[in-house]
Amino acid sequence: MPDTTVALLEARLLALDPLTLIIEDDSHLHAGHAGARGGGHYRVDIVAQAFAGKNTVTRHRMVYAAAGDLMRERVHALSIRAWAPGEDV
Protein backbone atom coordinates (compact mmCIF):
# COMPACT_ATOMS: atom_id res chain seq x y z
CA MET A 1 0.00 0.00 0.00
CA PRO A 2 1.44 3.42 -0.91
CA ASP A 3 2.20 5.74 1.98
CA THR A 4 -0.80 8.04 2.18
CA THR A 5 1.15 10.42 4.41
CA VAL A 6 3.45 11.23 1.49
CA ALA A 7 0.41 11.97 -0.69
CA LEU A 8 -1.15 14.13 2.03
CA LEU A 9 2.11 16.04 2.56
CA GLU A 10 2.44 16.59 -1.17
CA ALA A 11 -1.13 17.89 -1.46
CA ARG A 12 -0.58 20.35 1.37
CA LEU A 13 2.85 21.54 0.27
CA LEU A 14 1.45 22.34 -3.18
CA ALA A 15 -0.04 25.40 -1.44
CA LEU A 16 3.51 26.84 -1.53
CA ASP A 17 3.42 26.58 -5.34
CA PRO A 18 6.72 24.67 -5.57
CA LEU A 19 8.77 24.46 -8.73
CA THR A 20 10.28 21.27 -7.33
CA LEU A 21 8.93 19.03 -4.58
CA ILE A 22 10.45 15.73 -3.52
CA ILE A 23 9.16 13.85 -0.48
CA GLU A 24 10.92 10.73 0.75
CA ASP A 25 9.63 8.34 3.41
CA ASP A 26 12.63 7.49 5.60
CA SER A 27 10.59 5.66 8.25
CA HIS A 28 12.27 2.34 7.46
CA LEU A 29 15.59 3.84 8.58
CA HIS A 30 14.13 4.41 12.03
CA ALA A 31 12.47 1.05 12.67
CA GLY A 32 12.51 0.29 16.37
CA HIS A 33 12.93 3.97 17.28
CA ALA A 34 10.49 4.68 20.14
CA GLY A 35 9.04 7.74 18.39
CA ALA A 36 8.47 5.89 15.14
CA ARG A 37 5.24 4.47 16.55
CA GLY A 38 3.75 7.97 16.70
CA GLY A 39 4.30 8.82 13.05
CA GLY A 40 6.79 8.45 10.27
CA HIS A 41 10.09 10.09 9.35
CA TYR A 42 10.07 12.09 6.12
CA ARG A 43 12.46 14.19 4.07
CA VAL A 44 11.28 17.15 1.98
CA ASP A 45 13.27 18.96 -0.71
CA ILE A 46 11.31 21.95 -2.00
CA VAL A 47 12.08 24.89 -4.27
CA ALA A 48 9.51 27.69 -4.26
CA GLN A 49 9.42 31.40 -5.02
CA ALA A 50 7.60 31.81 -1.69
CA PHE A 51 10.96 31.27 0.06
CA ALA A 52 12.72 34.18 -1.68
CA GLY A 53 14.16 36.60 0.85
CA LYS A 54 13.24 34.34 3.79
CA ASN A 55 15.71 32.80 6.23
CA THR A 56 15.89 29.07 6.97
CA VAL A 57 13.77 29.23 10.12
CA THR A 58 10.98 31.11 8.33
CA ARG A 59 11.08 28.66 5.42
CA HIS A 60 10.78 25.70 7.78
CA ARG A 61 7.88 27.37 9.58
CA MET A 62 6.16 27.83 6.24
CA VAL A 63 6.53 24.12 5.48
CA TYR A 64 5.29 23.15 8.97
CA ALA A 65 2.30 25.50 8.60
CA ALA A 66 1.41 23.99 5.22
CA ALA A 67 1.70 20.46 6.66
CA GLY A 68 -0.64 21.50 9.47
CA ASP A 69 -2.11 18.76 11.62
CA LEU A 70 -0.06 16.08 9.83
CA MET A 71 2.81 17.22 12.06
CA ARG A 72 0.85 16.18 15.14
CA GLU A 73 -0.83 13.09 13.79
CA ARG A 74 1.20 11.37 11.06
CA VAL A 75 4.70 12.88 11.03
CA HIS A 76 7.15 12.23 13.84
CA ALA A 77 10.16 13.82 12.13
CA LEU A 78 10.51 16.02 9.06
CA SER A 79 13.84 16.91 7.50
CA ILE A 80 13.43 20.01 5.33
CA ARG A 81 15.66 21.48 2.63
CA ALA A 82 13.94 24.56 1.24
CA TRP A 83 15.30 26.90 -1.42
CA ALA A 84 14.14 29.80 -3.54
CA PRO A 85 14.65 29.51 -7.31
CA GLY A 86 18.20 30.33 -8.36
CA GLU A 87 19.79 29.51 -5.01
CA ASP A 88 22.56 26.94 -4.91
CA VAL A 89 21.02 23.60 -4.05
Rank of each mutant, 00 (worst) to 15 (best):
N55Y: 09
R74C: 09
I22V: 14
H30F: 13
G32F: 13
A11C: 04
D17L: 10
T4F: 10
H76D: 07
V75C: 03
D25T: 09
H41Q: 10
R61E: 08
L78C: 07
L13R: 00
R59M: 05
L9S: 01
T5P: 03
V89Y: 08
L14V: 11
A65N: 06
Y64C: 07
L13M: 08
L16T: 01
V47S: 00
E87L: 06
A67I: 00
E24T: 15
L9P: 00
I23V: 11
A11K: 11
A7E: 13
P18A: 06
G35M: 11
L29K: 15
P2E: 10
G68N: 04
I22P: 06
D3P: 01
L9N: 02
D25L: 11
I22T: 15
E24G: 10
R81G: 05
E73T: 15
D3C: 07
R72Q: 12
I22D: 14
R81F: 10
L14C: 14
R72M: 12
E24W: 11
P2F: 08
H30V: 13
G68L: 04
D88N: 11
A31M: 13
V6W: 06
A7D: 14
R12H: 07
D26F: 14
A84V: 07
L19V: 15
A77N: 05
V47A: 00
L19H: 15
T5R: 06
K54Q: 14
L13A: 03
V6M: 04
A7H: 12
A48E: 02
L29T: 08
D25E: 12
Q49N: 13
A48F: 03
H60P: 03
V89W: 10
D25Q: 11
G38N: 14
A66I: 04
K54P: 02
T58K: 10
H28M: 13
R12P: 01
E73H: 12
A50I: 05
T5Q: 02
D3E: 05
A48N: 01
R74L: 08
M71Y: 05
V57M: 12
R12Y: 03
A65T: 09
Y64I: 08
G32I: 11
A15F: 02
R43F: 09
H30W: 09
T20P: 02
H28T: 10
V47Y: 03
T5V: 12
L16I: 05
L13N: 01
Y64M: 07
L8V: 12
L14A: 14
I23L: 06
W83H: 13
V75K: 01
L13E: 00
L14S: 10
T4L: 13
I22Q: 12
A48D: 00
V75L: 05
P18Q: 04
V63W: 01
D26P: 11
A82I: 05
G40E: 03
L8N: 10
G68T: 04
